[in-house]
């Protein structure tokens, strides 16, 4: 094979696990829990809440986790730090504010996202849209005003004046008492 190293050859000739010695057969296997590993998996992923497609909710939703709506919501959504996805079967009647909004279903209400709003093909949105990056795919139905939020780049700071270190008079060699000439 191409550029196969000696190390690889050694590894392939070795069995994956060492063969158990006769004394190993008598030893009881200790089951290891995968709980700790799973826990770390969960901490590494973002929590996503879902409203299933048979659910109908009336009222305000506010929180700090991503949300997928596949059902029907009559009320506002406020997830300033998170993403809202309205699935193909999802319908929202109310204003939505989130970090990111992705629409595959329908929304009747104003949308405001600090980052991105994506209205996918076949989605339907009636309402005004305000976002840093609005994206409307072909064959999406959109009726409303679009306004982009401009993030002004911070003005470059004026160059700091050069630091001039003036030696203290008392530290100058000539000013040292012992150097003074009487």
């Amino acid at each position: 094979m191409w550029n196969r190293s000696k190390k690889d050859d050694e590894a392939s000739s070795r069995p994956a696990t060492p063969a158990p010695s006769p004394s190993d057969y008598g030893r009881e296997a200790i089951p290891t829990s995968s709980y700790a590993a799973r826990q770390s998996d969960f901490s590494g992923t973002r929590a996503v809440a879902t409203i299933g497609k048979s659910l109908i909710i009336k009222g305000l939703i506010r929180g700090q986790e991503d949300l997928v709506i596949d059902g029907r919501l009559e009320g506002d959504v406020d997830l300033p730090e998170n993403r809202l996805t309205v699935g193909v079967t999802g319908h929202v009647q109310g204003a939505v504010r989130a970090r990111e909004i992705v629409v595959l279903g329908s929304i009747q209400g104003n949308l405001e996202a600090s980052e991105r709003v994506e209205i996918k093909k076949n989605a339907k949105v009636i309402g005004d849209l305000k976002a840093q990056r609005p994206v409307i795919e072909d064959e999406a139905y959109f009726k409303g005003n679009v306004e982009t939020i401009r993030i002004d780049k911070p003005a470059p700071k004026p160059a700091a004046p050069p630091i001039v270190v003036e030696p203290q008079a008392s530290l100058l060699p000539d000013n040292k008492p012992e150097n003074r000439k009487g």
Binding site: P134, I136, E137, D138, Y141, K143, N145, V146, E147, R150
Partner: peptide, 22 residues
């Protein structure tokens, strides 16, 4: 004409608001 991405980018890129309807 039904808003599309190039029109949206062009108009909002000039600092205006665009209302879309088909």
């Amino acid at each position: 004409g039904g808003i599309n991405q190039p029109n949206l980018d062009f108009v909002t890129g000039l600092g205006h608001r665009i209302y879309g309807e088909n």
